[in-house]
Design a protein around this nucleic acid. Structure first.
Lengths: 203, 203, 203, 203
DNA sequence: CATGAATGAGTCTTCATTCAT
DNA sequence: CATGAATGAAGACTCATTCAT
């Protein structure tokens, strides 16, 4: 027999909880945010929460998987129209430097970085983290190696290292932005970093 | 009334507690590490702890202030002997790329990054953090501008931005190392980043 | 308004729920088994459950009343063909010593004993329990006194006490069997107990 | 350095908690009695409880071990002065039939029997239970076999079976007493059971 | 009647902090 | 000053029961 509420209804509630959880984890951090915070934020009851997620940890992980997945999807799509490796790379820099650095967006990044630290203390989560990191890492390596094949970029350069440095800059800048907030010239810094990397890649 | 114990004795106990606290916060994180963990690690009693620090938060803050201060001192001393700005900069890269990436060292960095996140949620701590960041930031700006004055580096470049990117790379790489652990070629990555920055700075 | 479904249909569902409840209470105990366990086991919905029983307690009580009733019916029927009191008594011993000590049967006994304990804490249930106990108790007393009248058994013996001891042995052995499980020589023990009682009853 | 409170003080508190726990488990049962019930009964705080026992389960187990141990100690001591096996056995019957069937004593037995059921659902506890049961079981077997050696008792009888039946009667009678309460002629029943067993053992 | 999502009081457990000794 | 037992507020999670659909 069909369930009394539609799947869309349930999915919406689930997403509401995820949104509330993101807001709470961002504001207070994983440990400090409570289930009560989340359900109060979402207007649901505690019991309802546990109908959708089995634990605080589970919603946290779901949140992370989802947001990482979504941001990677966007990245991949954005690149498709570009021809040369250099253009692709530039576009990646553009995307990151044009992110809306609204409060909400910043908070998402805070959750991501916090997770990185939490994961580093937990063997189960580490694998999870590595897998996600690899997706982004490989994505950039692919572009760089394409550029090397097409002789846009120097062949003497280790693509993996440049990719690693790019993501380090990304995470490092976000980390700093968390503290510096409004005064942080994220856009300009990102573009500068882009130039720096391109200059290094070019022969 | 004359104090019953010498100041040195008290200072030693304080330092013991700080060391234990660092070990515990590094291993478990600020929220997860308990006062019990710290006093057990240090061999003292809970009562003793509260004679030296008024709260868990206080020892955490003290720790951070102290450890940042120590690492900056080392940095400043290390470059004194160098002549040119380029040499100084290279030396900074060298220092970071030759850090001992032992478990203990990694854990200290984890504490630092975690603090960055915690601070970002607390207006009182943010100022604190900014002040500390500024010390490192200014240190690098000074070197870069010296290089620009001496025409070692291009004058078209914003020194503050390069400094910011350098510290972003530093924090970003440490963040990634936390997860990748032993397999992470920190040294090579640091040297690559150094080359990248130098190439960008040079005319 | 005419009922929408037949009485048989409703009774069938009720019995299904009772069976499921017995299985769950047996497996997990009254407190630990949940309504969810019961409805999952029966394939019904929680709402359906509450159409047939007003509470967890109610289904529990219903179960107990029913199962005690059933087992007594069997006992009474089994005796009818026997002539002498001694034969009747022996047959009771036989019936119990030949019960199938399958997992399911053991679990039923567990439920019975557990109910005994739960009832002992609740004045309403105690009367209930006493009434049921009395049925079994009187049944045995009747046989023994018949034997005394017919001079099969010694008249110096208090029939009620022997009956009480018989049921104590029965419940005690089942209790021990719950723990000893497969290794428990229930059949032999029951027969030994039977001989012991008969020897005592005989002049 | 010496602890600030004596070991006796701590042991007393521990025993207070055990007493309170026994009272609460007896009154409400393991599942229904709460930590709050126990600490309220003992006049301590919830936190204090967890200084002495790590969980509700732990205090429950401790309680069981202790009370079983104590009652067995008493039993063994009581026997020592007796010469013949028959006298020993009679004395065991006497001890049980002269137990004070006060409310408190009855409640202890309720806890014991309830534990038997709980243990039967948990593989870890079952072994525990078997071990305890064996102590009592072996104790009786020893006496019976001594009587067989000395020709006080028939050699055709399986000592283990008689022992098993004795303990079954004991537990069975206690179970029934829980429900019948004051009206239950425990003493007389126990003596009757004793005669029954002795008659069976004698040649 | 059936469904199963929602409710929220109730439970165990943790832990920063206090304070009598 | 040192000790560590005591405190109790707070938090994650459960589950019998209700009720809108």
């Amino acid at each position: 027999m069909a369930p009394k509420v539609s799947e869309e209804y349930k999915e919406k509630k689930r997403q509401d909880l995820l949104k509330s959880a993101m807001a709470c984890f961002a504001e207070k951090g994983y440990q400090t945010a409570t289930i009560d915070d989340i359900v109060t934020h979402s207007g649901m009851s505690k019991g309802a929460f546990y109908n959708y997620f089995s634990s605080k940890e589970e919603i946290y992980l779901t949140l992370l998987k989802q947001s990482v997945y979504l941001s990677f999807q966007k990245l991949r799509e954005a690149i498709q129209s570009k021809e040369t490796a250099k253009e692709k790379l530039k576009h990646v820099f553009d995307i990151y430097s044009n992110l809306d650095f609204t409060k909400k967006s910043i908070q998402n990044h805070r959750v991501q970085i916090e997770f990185w630290i939490i994961a580093s203390r937990n063997d189960n989560l580490i694998d999870h983290m590595k897998t996600h990191a690899k997706v982004f890492h490989d994505f950039l390596i692919e572009i760089i190696e394409e550029g090397q094949k097409k002789s846009e970029f120097s062949k003497d350069i280790k693509s993996a290292d440049v990719s690693e440095i790019f993501w380090a800059i990304t995470d490092g800048l976000f980390l700093h932005m968390l503290v510096e907030k409004d005064e942080f010239p994220m856009k300009r810094l990102y573009q500068t970093a882009g130039k720096m990397i391109l200059k290094y890649l070019e022969k």
